[in-house]
């Protein structure tokens, strides 16, 4: 198994103001993303790579309904977020934008900087050097269908196409 994803580990209550700071909210996503998480981890935006995973404690994405909090992470290449729990609106936004978000009771076991590989369907997260994978709660099928389509917009496009066809 290739462990190509680096884990970026954050604490509890990471809020949408640090993910997508208000003063950049009218700026293009590239500008906004460059400031993603800078108030808690200044080097994050410049160092995170395509395919990396963000891990966190409880209530990730607390605060506003701004989708840019999800978009910024996606833009920077983050492919999944694993957290003890998510703030409700952030969770919905992530699903709607096709970014897998997995609840994981054992998120404390994930160390910053470790390399890992994640099977989104089963929720198994294999960490380099660990014998057993960390188990995340699998995403419900209803929501997996939206993620599998790449997000709500494509999901609806398919549905509407189906409605006209039938």
């Amino acid at each position: 198994m290739v462990m190509s994803a680096r884990i970026w580990k954050f604490g509890d209550d990471i809020d949408t103001d640090v993910l997508a700071p208000g003063r950049y909210m009218t700026a293009p996503i590239a500008t906004l993303a460059a400031h993603c998480l800078e108030n808690v981890r200044p080097e994050f935006a410049a160092s995170v790579k395509q395919g990396d995973i963000v891990a966190a404690g409880a209530n990730f994405g607390a605060g506003s309904s701004r989708e840019q909090a999800v978009e910024a992470l996606k833009y920077l290449g983050v492919v999944a977020i694993v957290a003890k729990s998510f703030a409700g609106i952030f969770y919905r936004n992530a699903i709607n934008l096709g970014l897998p978000v997995l609840e994981c009771a054992e998120a404390d076991l994930l160390a910053d900087g470790s390399m890992a590989s994640l099977d989104i369907g089963s929720g198994k997260l294999q960490i380099a050097g660990h014998a057993e994978p960390v188990e995340c709660t699998p995403i419900p099928d209803f929501l997996m269908a939206i993620i599998a389509d790449g997000g709500l917009v494509t999901h609806l496009e398919k549905r509407f196409a189906g409605e006209t066809a039938s």
Binding site: E67, V70, I89, N93, N96, V153
Partner: peptide, 17 residues
């Protein structure tokens, strides 16, 4: 509260999960 993409879905369909 919901985000913008989900809102677009509501505006298009009048429904939400």
């Amino acid at each position: 509260g919901i985000g913008a993409t989900e809102m677009a879905g509501v505006l298009a369909t009048g429904e939400i999960w």
